[in-house]
Design a binder for these strands. Structure first.
Length: 699
DNA sequence: GCAACTATC
């Protein structure tokens, strides 16, 4: 049985309620007040927020009960006169649902549309529907939303919820964001690539509109954390407004000693809680990845079966993004009476999925996250320490409905050494797409674009070099401009190399096929690989497998899926993720529309697979590897030793030359998404590039 | 020789 985990006395704190930083100009506090959780974010559409009451008085009462209501007048008075402001609001403060309404009701920014951005589409949709209910209007009229594949807004729309990516796409055709009078950037603390680019775009638009004497653009940055100095400084010392929320106190425990084995420590903690706490109190454990979570869940269930009499039973539920949707939903259902729910999750439960009723959080302090290395474009997926911000975010998951407890499986000293903030994504990803978008917006100098957290010059140069190789941009007197090809590439919501693949496809007579392949590459994997049923999967998949690689195999899967009429049972039998394959279908339709608008001919290669491979070679030539005499592989450009990923259909094959979609460093450096190509094709595709590489190899 | 954090256009 588990031994004592050894936690010292708890510290009490209220997440986010720490002393506001010195820069806070105004303090808006509000009486707590009861009432329903009106401002609570709801991010799973299936568990839709109880619709606002049909009775106007009740809706009004609920709105008035929110903490933010007390500050309404003061907020409006301040915001009326400000160009930019930063608003810190704790979870449950009601800021996201109420502030846009206050601005509208107060006539602030009424000359244009009020935009509210969200990192996630479900959030944008459910917030819009919530706010339109509160305004007792039909969704899409006064209040609307715009997300990929779904635009529910009209001429009448004055409050519009969008994903940050969607507003960014709008900015390509109108970099001054003319239709908006106010942009509210919500969840800014999450620092998604899109939000980070938007910071710069919005700041530039604000400045430019002022210079042109146009309608001013009001910018409000909303964040749930206290680290807002950066936001404030970036927007010219914008005032920081602080809004109290309704978070419950949480006790935090640290371990006395550093833990060698965080999985063991997590198990010990879970069963310590399980034996002491009333069974109605649920536990949320943060681990790093699918395999680890499945393995730990199994151990948990095994231990639970052998507990002493009188111990309540335990319902163990894994949670990660690639888990089938139906299984994800189980975490929202209450456990049977007398039974405790333990959810073992990736960082998906940190922000994307909010589980009600969690009393205990067990934080291993580890996360699996991507790092990016600009030379070689290597993405490294590694288990690493969380940041302090992330640890607080995890802790906060325990106090959403009542007071909670958080067990941190590291010492307080260790915690003090964690990074203060998570490195923003913009410093960890390939910037080719971002640079292409900025160039499409005609940003004067992309190399010195005013990012809030600047990526390194190397990093930006690598992206520019990549775009140059793809033929997307040219240099004229030290000025970078898009070529006609580059402008076309920017029209696609795709990584530049995939946009290029589509634009090249007419030349190879395989546009229909490239549309399918690129769509499948731009969604999460459509192939399910449950570890416990590996042999079955292999047997069923054989009929789709192409000896020419993964891209052609994916194409075969999609064709078979279409022939089966998009049938869900077919998906199940064939270990195909129906959600992802349907999404790929939607992406495909969107990309096809864009092609048709450009008057591209829709041609099919029919049975000719070689033309597809040639087309891939001409767009992915930067990611190639060759078989070495000793039977291993090395990338063509940097001679990095690489191996074929076990998930590839070419895993047991030894083609002389391949292009790959992705390089992934876990235990070793793996290529994923492979296609067999002819080395001559690559040289044809980019003669200068390969001549340079050969020269470099000789020197 | 053996494996995939999370979003989004």
């Amino acid at each position: 049985m588990p031994e004592e985990a050894g936690f010292p006395p708890a510290k009490r704190f209220r997440p986010g309620c720490g002393p506001p930083g010195g820069r806070v100009v105004m303090l808006l506090t509000a009486g707590g007040g009861g009432g329903g959780g009106g401002g609570r974010r709801q991010q799973q559409p299936v568990l839709a927020q109880p619709a606002a009451s049909p009775y106007p008085e009740a809706v009004e009462r609920q709105r008035r009960s929110l903490p933010i209501f007390q500050a309404r007048g003061q907020l409006l008075a301040q915001l009326r006169n400000l160009d930019s402001a930063v608003l810190i609001g704790e979870t449950g403060s009601g800021k996201t649902t109420q502030l846009p309404q206050y601005l509208y009701e107060g006539g602030v920014g009424r000359q244009g549309v009020i935009a509210v951005t969200q990192p996630r589409r479900v959030a944008a949709i459910s917030l819009a529907s919530r706010v339109s209910d509160e305004k007792r209007t039909e969704l899409g009229k006064l209040v609307g939303y715009s997300v990929r594949f779904d635009d529910i807004s009209s001429e009448d729309t004055r409050i519009k919820f969008l994903t940050d990516g969607m507003l960014l796409r709008e900015a390509i055709s109108d970099s001054l964001l003319r239709k908006y009078s106010c942009v509210i950037l919500d969840e800014a603390h999450e620092r998604t690539v899109h939000t980070d680019v938007l910071f710069g775009v919005v700041k530039a638009a604000q400045k430019r509109r002022k210079e042109l004497g146009r309608l001013p653009l009001k910018v409000i940055v909303m964040s749930a954390t206290m680290d807002v100095d950066l936001f404030s400084q970036y927007f010219g010392g914008a005032p920081v407004l602080y809004l109290e929320g309704r978070q419950h106190p949480i006790q935090v425990f640290y371990t006395k000693q550093p833990q060698q084995d965080y999985l063991h420590a997590a198990l010990v903690s879970v069963f310590q809680i399980h034996q002491e706490a009333p069974p109605s109190q649920d536990i949320l454990v943060f681990l790093t990845g699918q395999e680890e979570i499945e393995a730990t869940s199994k151990i948990c269930r095994d231990i639970a079966r052998h507990l002493p009499d009188g111990c309540p039973s335990l319902l163990v539920l894994p949670l990660y993004a690639s888990l089938p949707y139906a299984q994800q939903l189980r975490v929202f259902q209450g456990a049977p009476k007398g039974c405790r729910k333990v959810i073992i999750s990736t960082n998906i439960a940190e922000t994307s999925i909010t589980i009600p009723g969690i009393k205990y959080v067990v934080d291993t302090g580890m996360v699996k996250a991507k790092k990016y290395n600009p030379d070689g474009g290597l993405e490294v997926l590694a288990v690493q320490r969380v940041s302090k911000t992330q640890a607080w975010q995890r802790t906060g998951r325990a106090g959403r409905e009542d007071s909670g407890v958080c067990y941190r499986l590291y010492t307080e000293d260790e915690f003090e050494k964690f990074d203060k903030m998570t490195v923003p994504e913009i410093q960890r990803c390939n910037l080719a797409g971002v640079m292409l978008q900025l160039l499409a917006m005609k940003v004067p100098d992309v190399l010195t674009f005013d990012f809030m957290s600047k990526p390194s010059p190397d990093h930006i140069q690598a992206a520019v070099a990549q775009l140059e190789l793809l033929g997307a941009l040219e240099r004229k007197d030290e000025q970078l401009t898009l070529t006609p090809l580059g402008r076309k590439m920017a029209a696609f919501p795709l990584e530049p190399r995939f946009a290029k693949a589509i634009l090249l496809s007419p030349k190879f007579h395989c546009t229909e096929e490239m549309l399918t392949i690129v769509s499948l590459l731009s969604v999460d994997s459509v192939l399910c690989n449950p570890p416990s049923r590996r042999d079955e999967v292999q047997a069923v998949r054989r009929k789709f497998v192409s000896s020419e690689g993964d891209h052609v195999t994916l194409l075969n899967v999609y064709r078979a899926f279409r022939s089966a009429g998009g049938n869900k049972d077919w998906c199940k039998e064939n270990f195909v993720n129906s959600k992802n394959v349907m999404l790929a279908g939607e992406v495909r339709a969107q990309l096809r529309d864009i092609c048709l608008k450009m008057s591209m001919p829709m041609v099919s290669s029919r049975g000719d697979v070689e033309s597809i491979r040639r087309c891939l070679a001409h767009s992915l030539f930067m990611s190639t590897a060759e078989l070495q005499p000793d039977g291993t592989y090395a990338t063509t450009d940097t001679h990095q030793p690489v191996a074929i990923h076990p998930s590839s259909v070419l895993f047991h094959c030894r083609p002389a030359c391949v292009v790959y979609t992705e390089l992934l460093y876990t235990n070793r450096c793996y290529m994923r998404g492979l296609c067999v190509v002819d080395a001559d094709w690559l040289y044809e595709a980019a003669p200068d590039y390969f001549r340079r590489k050969l020269r470099a190899a000789r020197d």
